[in-house]
C-alpha cells in the first residue's frame, strides 16, 4: 500500500504524462486519443487483458486509462489487468473508465487498486484533467463514485476510532457530498474554506478506505446494488 501512496511520478522527458489506453473498442480509443491534450502522450494501446498486461509491463506508463469491461484473460476485465500489473502499482497509476454505472464493477476495480473512476461520456478536457491529477498521485472521484461511497459507507460520521476504516469522518463526508453534488475540487475547497491540497488529502483517504475496508457489507452492498 505504501508504494501507492508514494509521491509524484517523474514525468517523461518532454514533460508530458505517458499514458496507455486500454479499451476493446478501437474506435473509442482513437476518439479518446484525439480528445486528449498535448500534455499527454499516448505510448501504447491494448484491447484485451493479455495485451494490456504486456503493453503496460513493456512501456511502464505513468497512467493507464483502463476500461472496466475487457475481453480475454480469466474474465476479470480491468480488475485482472491491475492484478496482473501488481509489480508496477508503485509507479503506474490506473484510472478506470467505463460506460457501466453498475456499482459492483466500479467498486471492484477501485478495490483492485485503481486511483479513480470516470464515465466515458465526460469531455476530453475533463479526462485530461483527471489523467494529470492521477499522475500527480491524487484520486479522481466522479459525482457518481462519490454517491456510491456515501451509499456504501453510510452518511453518518464516524464517532469512535475503532472502526476507522469502516466509516468516513465528518470532513470526508462533507467532501464526498460536495463532489456528489457536482462540485469540482476547487469549488469544494472554496465552500469548505480549506486548500485544494487538503481536499485532495481527504479524497485520497476516502479512496484508501474504499480499498482497504474489510467491511463485508461493502462487497455485499455492491453486489446487491446492480442498478444506479
Amino acid at each position: 500500500m505504501s508504494s501507492i501512496e508514494a509521491g509524484g511520478v517523474q514525468p517523461a522527458r518532454d514533460g508530458s504524462v505517458r499514458v496507455v489506453l486500454v479499451d476493446d473498442h478501437a474506435i473509442f480509443r482513437s476518439g479518446l486519443k484525439a480528445d486528449l491534450d498535448s500534455k499527454i502522450s499516448v505510448v501504447g494501446e491494448a484491447g484485451t487483458v493479455e495485451q494490456a498486461i504486456a503493453v503496460i509491463a513493456q512501456t511502464r506508463p505513468d497512467v493507464v486509462l483502463l476500461d472496466v469491461h475487457l475481453p480475454g484473460g480469466l474474465g476479470g476485465g480491468g480488475r485482472e489487468v491491475i492484478a496482473g500489473s501488481n509489480a508496477l502499482l508503485g509507479t503506474t497509476r490506473f484510472l478506470a473508465l467505463s460506460v457501466s454505472d453498475a456499482a459492483e464493477d466500479v467498486v471492484a476495480v477501485i478495490r483492485a487498486g485503481a486511483r479513480g473512476y470516470v464515465t466515458k461520456t465526460i469531455s476530453g478536457a475533463e479526462i485530461t484533467d483527471a489523467v494529470l491529477r492521477v499522475a500527480g498521485g491524487d484520486a479522481v472521484f466522479s459525482p457518481r463514485l462519490a454517491g456510491f461511497v456515501l451509499d456504501a459507507f453510510g452518511t453518518a460520521p464516524a464517532d469512535i476510532a475503532d472502526d476507522e476504516l469502516d466509516r468516513l469522518s465528518a470532513r470526508e463526508l462533507e467532501v464526498m457530498r460536495l463532489i456528489a453534488r457536482g462540485y469540482s475540487y476547487k469549488e469544494v475547497a472554496k465552500e469548505l474554506f480549506i486548500s485544494i491540497k487538503t481536499v485532495e488529502t481527504h479524497v485520497s483517504a476516502v479512496l484508501r478506505k474504499l480499498q482497504l475496508s474489510s467491511r463485508h457489507e461493502l462487497t455485499k452492498w455492491a453486489a446487491e446494488r446492480r442498478l444506479l
Partner: peptide
C-alpha cells in the same frame, strides 16, 4: 492490496 485472488476454474 486486498485484491481477491483470481483462480482459473
Amino acid at each position: 492490496m486486498s485484491t481477491p485472488v483470481l483462480r482459473p476454474p
